[in-house]
Simulated scan of single mutants.
Amino acid sequence: MDSSDTPSPIAEPLPYAEVTDPTYAEVAAQNFTVEEVAPDTHVLRGTCPRCNAVLEVPLVGNVFHGMRSIRDVLRKRHTKPSAGDRVEPVICTCEDAHPNRPEGRSGCGAYWTLLLTTEAK
């Protein structure tokens, strides 16, 4: 049996930890998209910057008319929000196994904020 026949090791699940990091918002800005699913209802979709689980985060409210892609929107994240912008807290809500996760909780414990802006109509 040569090395190509050796099974690759299975990574241990990432333990639950309530943490944030400045890079989480940057990573989310690069991979999250926003989709309108109903009038005044949108869904952020992307992968958790900590555990890489696929997330869907519902957003409800009329502030999102004309929303651009999250990548374009968050290029200004170092600026203060303008009128009509929204700072949205996001937490990982995956159902993947994460050791030490408290009973009744979901996710890996990661959290971050996204600055969501709107385009003029």
Rank of each mutant, 00 (worst) to 15 (best):
S3C: 01
D5H: 09
T6W: 02
P7F: 10
P7M: 11
S8M: 08
P9Q: 07
P9E: 11
E12H: 08
E18H: 10
V19H: 01
T20Y: 03
T20M: 01
T20E: 11
D21H: 14
A25K: 03
E26I: 09
E26Q: 09
V27F: 06
V27T: 15
A28V: 02
Q30Y: 01
T33C: 02
T33E: 10
T33Q: 09
E35D: 13
V37P: 01
P39Y: 01
D40Q: 12
T41S: 07
T41F: 02
H42V: 08
V43I: 14
T47G: 06
R50Q: 06
C51M: 02
C51T: 00
N52E: 13
A53N: 06
V54Y: 08
G61I: 11
N62K: 09
H65R: 10
G66T: 09
M67C: 05
I70Q: 02
R71C: 05
D72S: 11
D72H: 06
V73E: 08
K76Y: 06
T79P: 00
S82A: 15
R86D: 06
R86A: 13
V87Y: 06
V87C: 12
I91L: 02
C92D: 12
C94G: 06
E95Y: 04
E95S: 11
D96L: 15
A97F: 12
A97N: 13
H98N: 07
H98Q: 10
P99S: 03
E103D: 14
S106C: 08
G107L: 05
C108P: 02
Y111T: 10
W112P: 05
T113E: 15
L115W: 04
L116K: 01
T118W: 04
A120I: 04
K121M: 08
